[in-house]
């Protein structure tokens, strides 16, 4: 299990990286944390002819608050986000979701940009970014463009990033603690494994505990993380009760977007059933932990 040979480049600016992407063509790959890529290269399932290592682009490693958004550089390590007081305060669901990623050594190396571009539909940050309507800032030869999380994931392990583009920044709306209920729940075979199904829920509530807006993202049920639109619509404008939660969970599982595959670890039927169970448990957890529910 040794990787194939490749040319290796270490740009120190985004511009240099983009130029290298242009000059090296289709067979070049960006390496950030490398926690999925290097494993795939060791299996020779990925055989890039050139690696463009962006770890030296220090400008891409930052977390800051701008108005009602958290602005995160693509090279920010998962562990940095997990322990960041700013993230914990302004977007606690992200910090929580990250604790579900593999084990500590993976999070010390893995980056937010890397996991988003890798686009695994069961991965924690992609699912959470869909729940949060995160925005992805992408740099390319002709400038920058911004995509919503909903547009960013195309299919299994495929994002909307073009071969000559680089994800440079992620913008995530901050969650006002007094009016937000949230949860991140999953089922995995072992502790630290990729989820079989995961559900990220964010509810915006008014002072009376009425849900103004619900955002529920599900992973492991389709080639990309998907939103439970029917469930979200059902919850909007409703007071949160056990029965509405159950109804929403049923709607989530019955959504046309929930179309899982079977594999060795779990059948499609199981995944579908878990969509309901986890949506229900997730919404309950969100509501129970919400200050305003007391």
């Amino acid at each position: 299990m040794k990787p194939t040979a490749f040319e290796y480049f270490t740009p120190s600016t985004v511009q240099e990286a983009l130029q290298l992407l242009e000059s090296q063509g289709d067979e070049a790959k960006i390496i950030a944390g490398g926690q999925s890529l290097v494993a795939m290269m060791n299996f020779r399932a990925a055989r890039p002819e050139a690696l463009i290592d962006i770890n030296n682009i220090k400008d891409l490693d930052y977390i800051r608050e701008e108005e009602d958004e958290l602005v995160i550089g693509a090279l920010t390590r998962e562990r940095t986000l997990e322990v960041s007081p700013l993230v914990k305060e302004k977007c606690p669901i992200l910090a929580k979701a990250i604790t579900h990623i593999g084990h500590l050594p993976i999070r010390f190396r893995g980056t937010i940009g890397g996991t988003l571009v890798h686009a695994d539909p069961t991965a924690e940050i992609p699912i959470t970014s869909v729940a949060l309507d995160a925005k992805m800032k992408i740099a390319g030869p002709s400038g920058e463009r911004v995509l919503n999380a909903g547009e960013f994931f195309l299919t299994y392990l495929t994002s909307a990033i073009e071969e000559n583009e680089l994800l440079v920044e992620v913008r995530i709306p901050t969650l006002p603690p007094k009016t937000t209920a949230w949860s991140y729940v999953d089922i995995s075979r072992r502790f630290g494994d990729f989820a079989i199904v995961a559900v990220a829920s964010v509810l915006s509530l008014d002072n009376d505990g009425v849900c103004k807006e619900a955002r529920i993202a599900m992973g492991g049920v389709a080639p990309t993380p998907v939103r439970a639109k029917e469930a979200e619509a059902l919850l909007a404008g409703q007071k949160i009760t056990d029965s509405i939660i159950e109804e929403a969970a049923i709607k989530a599982a019955e959504s046309d977007d929930v179309d899982p595959d079977s594999d060795y670890h779990a059948t499609a039927e199981y995944r579908k059933a878990m969509t309901k169970v986890l949506t229900q448990r997730g919404l309950k957890e969100a509501w129970t932990n919400f200050e305003g529910s007391k």
């Binding site: 290796y8 490398g34 010390f108």
Partner: peptide, 23 residues
């Protein structure tokens, strides 16, 4: 050699990482 068993874990600038997942 795919980052799961953890036997190759080392401290890299003080942080634990899988040495099989780095060049």
């Amino acid at each position: 050699e795919h980052g799961i068993c953890g036997a190759c874990t080392i401290l890299f600038n003080g942080e634990p990482i899988r040495s099989c997942l780095m060049f």
